[in-house]
Design a protein around this nucleic acid. Structure first.
Lengths: 204, 204
DNA sequence: GTCTATACATCGATAGAC
DNA sequence: GTCTATCGATGTATAGAC
């Protein structure tokens, strides 16, 4: 068996689509086969079972989004500029994959805790042994770039501001008028809104 | 048929548990019956179908959390104090129901847009014809209690800070050390963290 | 590798006795 | 109202021809 055959890729693409949309329980092998332009039997030939196929999709998507985060960490030494880049980069990755965060948050709560190894696997692949986001914040505090804040509380706030609007977009668009996540200007507007709100609270 | 028979209540309780944990697709009528201490046939006797049972559970939970929001809106005129009460009250409602927000965000994205009528139904029941959260923010701006900010952007940020930590708790607890959402002090610590971060960004 | 046909399990729903 | 027994549909997985 070739490692990344054309068919295998078509299946992974289709499976990613369906799983992200319907979730593991709602996804149907038949629908994945249809979208991949093949038949059900071939799915099992390549991936043995629905469980194994799901596992691969989840791993792929999870590592994608986490690598994305880790890569921005060392881009600039200026902390405010780092936050700006972080939001922009993260939203650019997340918004086109409309269901990604919704899917991950939903599915991860049903998993065994040992699957959190994905985090540290990815950290290690990028040369970190500890949570690098916490390290980055502590460094900014030590250097006097921001005032002393609880890194954990700050991470929860900041990630929430980035992720929630994307995840809840299907509802928000109906109750917050004129909101369009996919608008060309949305990302830059969101970047500025977050930084305006946050910076005064953490600047030294 | 009595309106709220004892059995009916037991079913609703069990169904709520299972649906919030497993989602609509992952939930099994058998498991709901087991947890309610009855058999499958009785489920259909009371609720006709899984769809109808789910619909009732979703409606109940959705209205619960939305009523909770609306009630705090008119508690105080001081906007900063309002924010504080909002966070506290919301977290108190959400945290004990560990899967509530995760469930709603997940399921609502799969629904027909017309189910967003639940929002305005609840708004109307409390005497509002427009989105009352936006109104509240606009009022604070008009009165000079906060500086002019985009209400939509602010709502996304603020809700994100409240909801995300609870929804993502299963992951966060593993990568943000010493974090315990269920700790007695968590809510007050979170309240202060959010207000510290936010207030400097919006005070006049 | 890819297909058709089918086995096997499970789930939602109903029939019918009490 | 509540139960047992079972039907019918659907979903995952496999057997076997090509």
């Amino acid at each position: 068996m070739e490692f990344n055959s054309d068919t295998e890729q078509k299946i992974m693409r289709a499976a990613t689509e369906v799983f992200l949309e319907k979730g593991k329980d709602g996804a149907r092998m038949q629908e994945i086969a249809n979208r991949a332009g093949i038949n059900k039997a071939l799915l099992h030939y390549y991936f043995r079972s629905k469980d194994k196929l799901f596992e691969q999709v989840f791993r792929q998507e999870f590592k994608f989004i986490l690598s994305n985060i880790v890569q921005v960490l060392s881009v600039t030494d200026d902390f405010k500029e780092f936050l700006r880049q972080f939001v922009r980069n993260y939203l650019q990755a997340i918004i086109p994959r409309r269901n990604l965060m919704r899917f991950i948050i939903w599915e991860i709560a049903k998993m065994q805790p040992n699957l959190v190894q994905y985090f540290f696997e990815t950290f290690r692949e990028h040369g970190y042994t500890e949570n690098p986001v916490i390290l980055r914040i502590k460094k900014a505090i030590d250097e006097g770039q921001i005032k002393p804040v609880d890194p954990v509380q700050f991470i929860m706030s900041f990630l929430g501001m980035c992720i929630f609007p994307v995840m809840a977009a299907p509802i928000l668009q109906h109750i917050l008028y004129h909101l369009d996540i996919n608008d060309a200007d949305f990302i830059e507007q969101r970047v500025e809104a977050i930084l305006d709100l946050v910076w005064n609270g953490i600047k030294p």
